[in-house]
Amino acid sequence: MSDTTIIQLFVFMLAGFVGIQTIHRIPPLLHTPLMAATNAISGISLVAALVLAGSGEGWLAGLLGAIAVACATANIVGGFLITDRMLAMFNRRPNPKNGATP
């Protein structure tokens, strides 16, 4: 294994730890929005799909890449739109409550 790979393993370990820590003790109310948001985030494989689709390695790589780009884009666009809709819905709930208490 090269030095780069070792450093990447460190990056993986630390990022994973951050992932665990940030989600720790999240209120159940936010479970579904978080699931929708991380679903959109998992569309990061678009980055790899772009490189494959644009590699100019013939039509097979191009076609596979284009399908991958389309799938990942649909995942990202749909995921963020629906998370936003969901959060907009229950952002309304605390506001009237805050408005009513004072």
Binding site: V51, G65, V69, T73, A74, V77
Partner: peptide
């Protein structure tokens, strides 16, 4: 940033994929 990558030399597949994905993703979200 990825679109600046030197490994990307052709654009037709990328553009096609991005358009199809956006068109498919919008109703999935809205």
């Amino acid at each position: 940033a990825t679109l600046l990558d030197a490994r990307i030399v052709s654009w037709q597949w990328i553009v096609a994929g991005l358009i199809v994905g956006t068109v498919a993703g919008y109703p999935l979200g809205m």
